[in-house]
Amino acid sequence: MLSYGFAQRALVGGAILAAVCSLVSFFVVARRLAFVGMGISHAAFGGVAIGLAGGVNPYLAAGGFCSLVAVGIGWMSRKGRVHEDTAIGILFASAMALGVVLVRLTGVYNIDLMSYLFGSILALRWDDIWIMGAVSALTMVFIVLFFKELLFVSFDQETATASGLPVRFVEYTFLVTLSLTIVVSIKLVGIILVSALLVVPSAAGWQLFRNYRWVILASETVGLSSVLIGLYLSHRFDVASGATIVLVLFGFFLVSALISPRREYMRRLLNAFSR
């Protein structure tokens, strides 16, 4: 399989995205941004349509558009006039609707919309991988440099603000990096499934460990193995790569929930047998 160019690109791209998404997913779970992630990724559809209609690179357009939507969600909920989930509900449906209308009006049917919705990792080019790498590097650098601030804000925003940390800067920058990560991940798993990459790795990690260092390590392990196993299975059985990856992720989550020390399923099971 590795002798094919497309397979090499898929593996390299997949590994990069798995690494960055798994790291981001720690804060997505910690800050309960799963729904925000979903909102942003669906808004990407609007961005892609704007790009297609305006003759701009659809991913570039989606990146800008999603960042705007993310900052919009953050701003609306920070002002406190609208609840965060309400803000997401408003913005994500509107952005998708805008996408549908634009696609219809400009008549760009010949473009494979399904590839944006469900991913098309086998169509990756090396250019795409360079972009993925650059965005992922930026995101990781941001998270590493501002890790202590992000951790404090995620744990207890009130005290973080009171101790003089640049909370607003950290919050908005995180939302923008989250948007960019989502947009570059669309090629891998598509708009509809991208939120799984941003939630499941760390959700599995939280099941297993009670210290963030281990949670992040577990999250990286789960993310990377899921992407690699998913790609292999999708190639082997000729099914969509994005969907396969998400199913493998889900499998990892199930296993981690089963063996989670928090739940003690395994101990109860062993007890039941030994009785």
């Binding site: 601030e149 404090f152 744990f155 101790s163 003089g164």
Partner: peptide, 24 residues
């Protein structure tokens, strides 16, 4: 603050929480 509204499952130790105070 009056109530530190935190998730009791948040994966940080006592040491990590106190270190947060040093962040600034």
């Amino acid at each position: 603050p009056q109530q530190v509204l935190f998730d009791p499952r948040f994966p940080v130790s006592v040491y990590d929480v106190v270190m947060m105070g040093r962040a600034c």
